[in-house]
Design a protein around this nucleic acid. Structure first.
Lengths: 169, 169
DNA sequence: GTCTATACCAAGATAGAC
DNA sequence: GTCTATCTTGGTATAGAC
C-alpha cells in the first residue's frame, strides 16, 4: 500500500496549492512554509508527503505536464494549440522555463523527469515530422519563443511556430 | 584617482571569481560568502561593490556577454561559431539558460539587461536574415537547443542550427 | 483488538543573504 | 548580527489490514 486515501487526497491538495504558490512568487521566491500553512499543515507534515521542496516542484510540474499531454494522432497541431493556451499563463510558462533549465543539473530532483519528457516529445514529433532534427528544432523553438515572449508579450509565439513548421515542410 | 582604479581592479577580480563560483555550483547553489572569501573580502565588502547577489550575477553575465558579442558584418556565422564554442562550457550554458528564464520576472536585477540583449540580438539577425520572425526563431532555436543539449550531449547543436538556417533561406 | 504503515507536529540544526 | 529558509530529529496519533 503506497498510502491511505487520506494521504492521497492531501497530496492532491498540496500539488494544487503548490502550483498556485510557485506560479505566484516563482520557485525560489516561494517558501515551503507558505505552502504548508495554506494547506493547513506544518512544514514537517508537508515534507512527509514530498521529501524536499525540489521534489515537490518536480511533482507539481509532472502533474501539470500530464494534463497537457499531446495527442499522438496529431502532436504538431496539439503543440501549436498548447503554445496558444500558454499565452494566457505567463507565470506557468516562466516556472517551466526556469525549471527545465535548472533541472539540466544531473542532481536536480526533476532532472530525470525532464530528460524523459524531452525524449518523449522529440520522439513523438520526429514520427509526425519524419525527421528527428526537425523535431528538436520545433521543441527548441517552443522553449525559446516562450522566453522571448515573456520579455516581450507582443510576440505572437504561435504564429512564429507555424512559420517554422511551414519552413521545415 | 588611485582609489577609483583600485576599486575597478577589485570589481574585475570579483567578476572573475564570481563567474567561476556560479558556473561551478550554479547560482542558487553558490554563496556570496564563498565568493567574498575567495576574493579576500568580507561579505560586506563584496556587497559594497555589487549591491546584491542578483546584481552581481547580472554584472557577471553582462561582462561575459560583452566578450561574446557578435560581429555586425556576419552575425549568423558568429552565432553558429558561438554555439560551437559553447559546447565546451556546459556550466556556463546552464547559467545563462537559468538566468535568462529567471530574469523574465520584471523585478529581477538582470531583467532589463536580458530584455535589451534579446532585442539587440534579434535586430542584428533580422537585418542579416531579412525577416524579424526568422531572427526570433533562430534565437529561440539557439536557446532551446542548448537546453536539450544539456540533457543529451550527443545532440549536435551547431548542425541543427545550420539545418534551420538552410530551411529558412 | 492488535499491529504496522502512514499522517502529522514541535522544536531545533544548519546555512545563506544582507 | 539578524532574519528567513530548508530540512532533520524524535515523537504522537491514526488509518486500515488481519
Amino acid at each position: 500500500m503506497a498510502g491511505y486515501a487520506k494521504g492521497a487526497a492531501r497530496r492532491e491538495e498540496i500539488l494544487r496549492v503548490a502550483l498556485e504558490v510557485f506560479t505566484g512568487g516563482g520557485y525560489h521566491g516561494s517558501s515551503t512554509r507558505e505552502i504548508a500553512t495554506r494547506v493547513g499543515l506544518s512544514e514537517a507534515g508537508l515534507f512527509h508527503h514530498f521529501g524536499s521542496k525540489q521534489q515537490l516542484l518536480a511533482a507539481v510540474l509532472e502533474a501539470r505536464d500530464a494534463r497537457d499531454a499531446l495527442d499522438a494522432d496529431d502532436p504538431v497541431a496539439g503543440l501549436v494549440a498548447l503554445v496558444r493556451r500558454n499565452a494566457g499563463a505567463p507565470e506557468l510558462v516562466r516556472l517551466f522555463a526556469v525549471t527545465s533549465a535548472e533541472a539540466t543539473a544531473p542532481d536536480h530532483a526533476a532532472h530525470d523527469g525532464f530528460a524523459a519528457r524531452y525524449a518523449r516529445l522529440c520522439a513523438l514529433l520526429a514520427a509526425a515530422l519524419g525527421d528527428p532534427a526537425h523535431a528538436r528544432l520545433v521543441v527548441a523553438a517552443v522553449d525559446g519563443l516562450q522566453v522571448q515572449w515573456l520579455y516581450d508579450p507582443s510576440i505572437d509565439m504561435a504564429a512564429d511556430l507555424e512559420l517554422l513548421l511551414e519552413s521545415l515542410a
